[in-house]
Structure formats: structure tokens, C-alpha cells
Amino acid sequence: MGWLSHSICNANEVGNWSPIRLIRDGPLLSHLFFADDLILFGHADNNQAWVMNDILDEFCDYLGHQINMQKTNIFFSKSVDDSLGRRISGFFGFQEVTNFGHYLGVPLLHDKYTNNTLRFVVDKVHSKLTSWDARQLSFVGKVTLAQSILLSIPSYFVQAMMVPKGVCDKIECIVRKFVWGFHNGSSKMTLVSWDSVCQPKPYGGLDLRQLKDYKTPFMMNIGFNIISNVNALWIQVLWSKYSP
């Protein structure tokens, strides 16, 4: 990946590669790498397609690999003409998509987060719950599973987005029903309030954490990075769009 990044940077310096800006006066974007995944950015024109294709061919020849066409997609902005988009996607042989889908469980392109947007998180928790036979578990076993698995599933999403209160309430409702159990198809009566259950053990609780308590520290961490790590690319993009 280092060789590919170096080739793209060289193409930028000589003016062959045309990077894009997500925001007017924002930083230039030509490529993003994460592990073995990458996104290439460029203007939608025939010359740029040839430049990208030549660099990718050199990269594949250098490593002796081939691009997986089934796992590679091409995405155009709304301002690109449909006929031009079809020609470029046909030139590369990549499938044209209108959405990048999810990466590490998080949607890459989305509007404002709503309860429906994050419905998949609730469904993920519910599917995990239904895969266990709660009748075979003791109360301690249910609490342990709820603490280690059920409440850990949404924690990743909370780190990357502001999860609506309605989604948190639905997930905690699923966890409460799982912990207290069912009788004849109906939820058993809760013996103590959920706030008491989520208290630390020295204070009489079971040390379960409420999802609303997850959100605040993660959002504070993002805010701290925005203020302190101003040289990071993603922070430069945010500053160029939202800073006064």
C-alpha cells in the first residue's frame, strides 16, 4: 500500500491526478487507506480514468496480484452525467453503486441519524438475544451475558455516531426483558428499577451500564480530538465545513 500511495502522491505533484475537495476550500483528497481497504478520489473524466487505471495496473504488476472486480465498486456524485458514469465504470469494469453500504458495521453515506437509520443495531441485539435459550440460564448467567455481549454490541456504533435516545431505549428494553426473563410468553415483573440495576456493585447494583452513559465520554473524546489534533485529515475536513 505504501508503494501505491507514493505513486498517487507523485501523480498529484506532476498534475496527472486530479484530487477532489469535499468542501470548497477544503483539503484535497486523492486516496484513503485503512488496512487492506482503500478509496480513490478523482474527477470523473476520461483522462483521469486512464491515469488511475495505469497506476493500478503498475501496482498489480509490481505485487503480482489482481483487483477483485466483485469487491470493487465505483461511486459518482449526483452532478456526474449518467452516460459519462457508465463509460467510466465500463472502462474499469467495476460495478457502479449509489451507496457504499456499511463499513465495520457503520453506514458510510447517510442522512441525519434517526431511529430507522439505526434499526439494524436493534435488530442485531435482538437476533443475538433470540439465539440463546434464556430458560437454561441462571440470573447471574443472564446478567453476565447482558454485560459482556448485549451491551457491548452497540458500543462500537456509539463511538462513531450520536445514537438517538429512542434506539438506546429499545436496546435497554431488550436487555431488561432478557435479564428478568419470561413466563408463559410474557415478561416477568421487574423486581427493582433499571437505574438501581445499573448502579455499581458497592452501591447495590449489578454494574450494568446504561447506553446513555456511553455516549457522553465518546462524544467528549471526539470533541477533544477536533480541538487538539488539528493536523488530522478528517478534522481538517470538518473544520473547513463547519468552523466559523
Score class of each variant (00 low, 15 high):
P217C: 04
F182T: 10
C60A: 11
D57G: 00
I174S: 13
L118H: 00
M219E: 15
N68Y: 05
L56M: 14
D36Y: 08
Q95W: 00
N46T: 14
I88R: 03
L233C: 06
S243G: 09
V158N: 11
S18F: 10
W194Q: 07
V197S: 05
D45A: 01
G141W: 02
S155Q: 12
R135F: 00
G64Y: 07
L145K: 02
D36T: 07
M52E: 09
Q199M: 14
V179W: 05
Y62T: 14
D45L: 01
S240E: 02
F157P: 03
Y156R: 03
I88E: 03
H6V: 14
V167Y: 01
K165W: 01
F100D: 01
A160F: 13
G185K: 09
K177G: 15
K215I: 11
V125W: 01
G85L: 04
N99H: 08
V230F: 09
H110P: 00
C60R: 04
M69Q: 13
V140L: 12
F91D: 04
S155V: 14
F218P: 03
S7I: 04
S187Q: 05
C198M: 03
N73K: 12
N12R: 14
L145Q: 02
V140C: 10
Y156H: 13
V14G: 00
S138K: 04
L151A: 09
V163R: 00
K71A: 10
D82Y: 08
F178D: 06
I235N: 12
N47C: 06
K112N: 10
D82N: 14
H43Q: 15
R176A: 08
E13G: 01
L29D: 08
S83Y: 09
N229Q: 14
F182A: 09
Q199K: 15
L104P: 08
V179Y: 06
Y156T: 02
K124F: 01
A49E: 03
N115T: 13
A35Y: 07
N10Q: 14
V163W: 00
D25R: 14
C168Y: 01
Q66P: 00
D36V: 05
P107T: 06
D207Q: 08
V167Q: 03
Q210Y: 00
Q66L: 13
G223E: 03
M52G: 07
T114D: 04
D213L: 11
Q70R: 11
K212D: 09
D82V: 13
S79E: 15
L233A: 11
A160V: 12
W180M: 04
F100G: 01
L145T: 02
N47E: 12
F33M: 12
R119S: 12
Q147N: 15
F218V: 01
F91M: 09
H126N: 12
N68A: 12
L84P: 04
D37V: 10
H31Y: 13
F76V: 04
H110F: 12
G42I: 02
K142M: 06
H6L: 13
F33Y: 15
D37R: 07
L151Y: 06
P200I: 05
Q159C: 13
P27S: 09
L118C: 05
